[in-house]
Each structure stands twice: as structure tokens, then as C-alpha cells.
């Protein structure tokens, strides 16, 4: 029974959202506001049940873990944003989070995002026994990377063989990347539509399995 009601509600709001494709209307706005409101409400309840209650309130009321008062108070300082005269206090938890995040994350992030990628770009153009397509791939990757970097080098005018031709090739490389991203984006958007159609034709109308 509840499942059936849920499916009908889901189908109604799916169609409500798609009604925007014809033109904006009150039913679409109702659905849009409900998505935002329900997501936020759900998240608040979830965080209360999974974090605030078991990790702060229960240990505190159990009479031990008094150290938790410190993070608890830090968290409460966020609420001072609503009182302009003491709003500056909210900077303390933000600073704590930012500092901790930077301290913990910086070395690993540097390694994951920069060093590993640099390492992967340092490949030999040719080695004995290397198949031709791998050689070709390495050439494209190395010169493509360099050309794209030249395009973003703005301290010199893009003229001459090195900067002029290099930046022109760089634009082509970047455009190829954008083209691939656009293609995947179209696929992604259609996939979301497919998911909704499967829901409407399958779960709701039972026309397809």
C-alpha cells in the first residue's frame, strides 16, 4: 500500500518537474521547492541521528567524555551568525575546520592531484618493443599537454613558432577535450531522462519490466 502511494507520488512529481519543459507553472515550482525542502529536512534529521545524538549528546549525558564539550561549543558558535554583534565568533569553528582540512589534506592532495599526474606525464616517447599505437599515444599526450599549457601562458604574446603555433595547437587540444566532455554530458542528461522513463513506464504504469 505504502509502496503504491510512494510510486504515485514519485510519478506525479516527475511529471510536475517535466512540465517545466512546456512552460513554468505553479506545479513545477511546488515540486522544485519540495525537493529542496525535503532534502534539507532529511539531511538535518540524519545528521542529528548519526552524529549529534550518538557522538555528542549520548556520551555527554552518560557522564563521561567531558572533552566533547569543546567540539560541542565550537559547533554552537556557528549559530552566532544569526546575532550580528557576536557573529565574528563563528569564524573560530570555520578556522578550525579549514586549518585541520589543510593540515591533513595538503600533503595527500598534492600527491594525488599533482605529483602522480606529473609522474604519469613523464613517459618515454619510444622504447624498443613498444607498439606503434603506444608510441603515437605518448607523443600525442606529451605534446598535447605542452601545447595546452602554452595556451595558458599569458606572459608572452602568442606569436612565433613556439608560442604562436604552440598555443594554436593548444586550443585544438582543449577543444577536443571540451568536445569529449560535451558528448559525455549529452549522454549523462539523456541517462537521467532514461531513468525517469524507466520509472514511469515500469514502476508506475507497468508497461515495461
Amino acid at each position: 500500500m505504502y509502496d503504491t502511494i510512494g510510486i504515485w507520488v514519485g510519478a506525479f512529481f516527475t511529471l510536475a518537474i517535466y512540465s517545466f519543459l512546456y512552460k513554468e507553472n505553479p506545479v513545477y515550482r511546488l515540486a522544485e521547492h519540495l525537493v529542496v525542502g525535503i532534502s534539507l529536512g532529511y539531511t538535518m534529521v540524519l545528521i542529528y541521528n548519526t552524529v549529534i545524538l550518538p557522538k555528542l549528546l549520548e556520551p555527554l549525558f552518560a557522564g563521561n567524555h567531558w572533552i566533547l564539550i569543546i567540539p560541542g561549543l565550537l559547533g554552537l558558535l556557528y549559530i552566532t551568525r544569526f546575532i550580528p554583534s557576536i557573529a565574528w565568533l563563528s569564524r573560530y569553528p570555520i578556522a578550525f575546520i579549514m586549518g585541520t582540512g589543510m593540515g591533513i589534506g595538503f600533503p595527500l592532495t598534492m600527491k594525488a592531484y599533482v605529483l602522480r599526474q606529473l609522474e604519469a606525464a613523464m613517459v618515454p616517447l619510444y622504447e624498443s618493443g613498444m607498439p606503434w599505437y603506444e608510441v603515437f599515444g605518448n607523443i600525442v599526450m606529451i605534446f598535447g599537454t605542452l601545447a595546452a599549457l602554452i595556451y595558458f601562458f599569458f606572459s608572452k604574446p602568442h606569436k612565433g613558432l613556439f608560442f604562436g603555433t604552440g598555443s594554436k595547437i593548444g586550443i585544438w587540444v582543449i577543444m577536443l577535450g571540451f568536445g569529449a566532455t560535451f558528448g559525455f554530458t549529452v549522454m549523462g542528461r539523456i541517462s537521467l531522462l532514461i531513468g525517469r522513463i524507466q520509472y514511469l513506464l515500469g514502476d508506475w504504469l507497468h508497461i515495461i519490466e
Binding site: 594525488a112 569529449a180 559525455f184 549529452v186 549523462g188 541517462s191
Partner: peptide
């Protein structure tokens, strides 16, 4: 990953991550 993100993460395959 979603289609929109896919091209962003191909370099992680090549780097062996």
C-alpha cells in the same frame, strides 16, 4: 562516475591511481 564527470577522471586511469 556520471557521464558529465567521466572525461575529468580519465587521467587517473593513465596514472594508475
Amino acid at each position: 562516475v556520471t557521464g558529465v564527470m567521466a572525461t575529468d577522471y580519465f587521467p587517473y586511469i593513465q596514472s594508475g591511481q
